[in-house]
Design a protein around this nucleic acid. Structure first.
Lengths: 211, 211
DNA sequence: CATTGCTTGACACTGAGTGCCACCGATAGC
DNA sequence: GCTATCGGTGGCACTCAGTGTCAAGCAATG
């Protein structure tokens, strides 16, 4: 359902409208706060109708969350292409680096991402949606990890928990990145966060016989 | 704000109303599904007014989530009273056992909790709120862990991530508990889940110098 | 009996999200 | 050139969540 990435004729117009909506929304929400800005404000700023907004975004939260969380497929693909012998901690670190790579390479994009991260972490409704999206990521990561390790995800808690730990690392990185006080390099923060969970991610399998 | 547990005269009536509302809501939501049941349906079943519902619960989600997540203070207290020399994994396991203890001891309460867990995990909106509540737990647990370990929670990612891993273990336990196919003992599930994260929880501190 | 305080119900209101239909522009076929 | 069709859009009305406000009801106290 995402396979039509470049139907140049009409698809480009759709993308244009979506970008316009997104930009107007992000601008308003980030400066004025999530709760006080209504969808009417957003569409007024974008010069479109309220109804159109909901054709492109499922909810007011969706505009913000999708800006960060639109790349789940890329993450899974990256994890699937890591060498099977690679330790889980390394493979997961590389997989979750995918959505961060753009921020790290392009400082101008990075600054806006920082604002969005701050907005999400500071707004309970957005934080909830963000976590909801992470749930999907976790399920997909867990399935792929089960694939890699040959474990049964229904009887062994490892795949799900490993995926959860990786996302916890990502969450911690974002939380420590968003203040922006000093130049906290994303790569360094990722290394630190994954260093904490690595002992559990790479521990020798002993889960089924824990009783 | 919770210090008035037994102002016997009027407080008991308040509790009665809250229970009535909660029971009606849980019954309807669990049987018919979260989305199709409106607040009007709930208050009609409870024989009260719509406005009263929102005096007792902040939202429709709140009724369900509070049923499980009303015990954060007890968890922190339990963690704070664990012996300082105890490994983090053991202390956290005991702390997070507190909200589960009631379910484990009283099978009749346990059955309803199972239904609520299933409802939460199956409903995205509820799951998101549940995780949002866990964020608060994580912050409180992290603060207490920083206290125990003497680490600075602003510079060291360990406290926050340790709290997150413990809650991830809890989440995994609930997810594996709710199918209820066979008699999965909560204690056993907790042991298995914590066995996965223990290597990271109890790893020797090496986080600040990871770069 | 009057007052004070707490709870409730009713009403109105904002805002999110959806369904429906009419409109508009472009493209394809006669 | 006229028309049928198709994707996108705007407008409208609707449901439902959640909030503010006010007028009771009802207990305890003077």
């Amino acid at each position: 359902m995402r396979a039509r990435a470049d139907n140049s004729l009409a698809e480009r117009k759709r993308q244009l409208v979506a970008d316009e909506l997104r930009d107007a929304a992000l601008m308003l929400l980030a400066t004025k706060g999530f709760d006080v800005v209504t969808v009417d404000d957003i569409v007024a700023a974008a010069g479109m109708s309220r109804r159109t907004f909901f054709r492109y975004f499922a909810s007011k939260e969706d505009v913000v969350v999708r800006f960060l969380a639109d790349t789940s497929a890329d993450i899974i693909t990256e994890l699937a292409t890591r060498p099977p012998a690679e330790p889980s901690s390394v493979a997961l670190r590389h997989a979750l680096w995918v959505p961060l790579a753009a921020c790290n390479d392009h400082p101008e994009h990075s600054e806006r991402a920082r604002v969005v991260v701050r907005l999400i972490l500071d707004t309970p409704a957005l934080h909830a949606r963000w976590l909801e999206r992470q749930i999907e990521w976790r399920a997909e990561l867990a399935a792929e990890l089960a694939n890699r390790s040959g474990l049964d995800p229904h009887t062994d808690p490892y795949p799900r928990m490993a995926a959860g730990m990786a996302l916890l690392a990502l969450d911690t990185v974002l939380q420590r990145w968003q203040p922006g006080d000093d130049e906290q390099h994303l790569a360094k923060l990722m290394d630190q966060a994954f260093a904490v969970v690595a002992p559990a991610l790479d521990a020798p399998a002993a889960s089924p016989a824990a009783g």
